[in-house]
């Protein structure tokens, strides 16, 4: 019985909470700009509204455009259920392998970029081109930053990483912090945040993610937006629970699970605060400066791995 409950929590937590953290980041950014800002629950209202609207679909679009939101959303739900969120007791989940997660997310990027090209607007096409440029260069940093942890604990299972890292002495955390810096850069790129992309406007010069989804409306737009929120929470959770896995429950029980959920929310809130502060204090980079940043992420991760395997 308990296992059914915690499995349900594990499956539903990411899609259920993801709009909340989008709202939180927006709220913090609004406060930085001296605005009151919308309620942190506004993204839920937006989704609900979009889900009930009719749709307009381009006459040039094919089934790829219609199908893409489903696969994008489905993938984020699967990945959200396969990463450590609050407990490490799901280690026998064969989907929680580092590479499986990364390539599943690549599957959603692949379809999103195809959907961007499908309507034949110049804007969408360039969004796809930029997205694939950034995504292909991010992959190295993303895999390698988490790979540092894999070598530190000798397992590619994300739950086992979480469990092992939480027992690490503080001294051993040095290279892991380096890998976290690499991960942070990759995370900002993957979730279309500053300095890679501006999640708040539809300005032609800056857009990556918003350009691709411009032609979506109604329930498909809701799915895409929801999936983007899921992806953000997935990365926040990975950052919080792989690199700072303190407070994660290693046993099953009401109190440990509740405490772990609390810890999870606190850690993710802190990371959200970090993103909001970053977004409020730095400018977006010029597109061709982004690769430098992404290679930096890769190099930082390589250094972290070297420190771990050579010492």
């Amino acid at each position: 019985m308990t296992s059914i409950i915690i499995w349900t929590i594990q499956l539903a937590l990411v899609p259920a909470l993801s709009p909340l953290f989008v709202g939180v980041i927006r709220k913090i950014k609004a406060r930085f700009q001296n605005r009151v800002g919308a309620s942190i629950f506004q993204p839920y209202n937006d989704l609900w509204k979009l889900l009930h609207k009719d749709e307009v679909i381009s006459e040039d679009a094919s089934w790829v455009f219609r199908f893409a939101p489903y696969i994008i959303f489905a993938v984020t739900v699967i990945v959200g259920a396969s990463i450590p969120l609050f407990a490490t007791v799901f280690a026998n989940n064969s989907l929680s392998d580092l590479l499986v997660i990364v390539y599943l997310l690549a599957l959603s990027t692949f379809f999103l970029a195809l959907a961007g090209m499908d309507t034949g607007s110049a804007f969408g096409g360039f969004g796809s081109s930029r997205e694939m440029t950034v995504a292909s260069l991010t992959e190295g940093g993303l895999i390698f930053s988490m790979l540092a942890l894999v070598f530190a604990v000798d397992s590619a299972n994300l739950f086992k990483i979480s469990e092992a890292v939480s027992a690490f002495p503080l001294v051993a955390m040095m290279p892991i912090m380096l890998a976290f810096a690499g991960f942070l850069i990759a995370m900002l790129a993957e979730t279309a945040r500053f300095p890679f992309d501006n999640p708040a406007t539809h300005l032609e010069l800056t857009m990556i993610h918003e350009a691709m989804i411009l032609e979506y409306s109604g329930k498909r737009l809701a799915l895409v937006e929801w999936a983007a929120a899921n992806k953000l929470l997935i990365f926040l959770a990975l950052g919080a629970n792989l690199f700072f896995p303190w407070g994660i429950a290693t046993t099953v029980g009401l109190m440990p699970i509740l405490a772990a959920l609390g810890w999870f929310v606190i850690k993710v809130l802190l990371l959200s605060l970090l993103i909001a502060v970053l977004e409020s204090s730095i400018a977006k980079f010029r597109f061709f400066r982004l690769p430098d940043l992404l290679f930096t992420s890769f190099i930082l991760s390589v250094i972290a791995i070297s420190l771990i395997i050579f010492i």
Partner: peptide, 30 residues
């Protein structure tokens, strides 16, 4: 839910095949 089939948003110009992204343009940034 109803689905309406409409033209791709074109800023008032008529979109044609030459305006969409090409294979060369797509990979130029990489």
């Amino acid at each position: 839910a109803k689905i309406k089939i409409e033209r791709t948003w074109d800023c008032g110009t008529n979109l044609n095949g030459r305006m969409e992204i090409t294979a060369t343009g797509f990979s130029r940034s990489i």
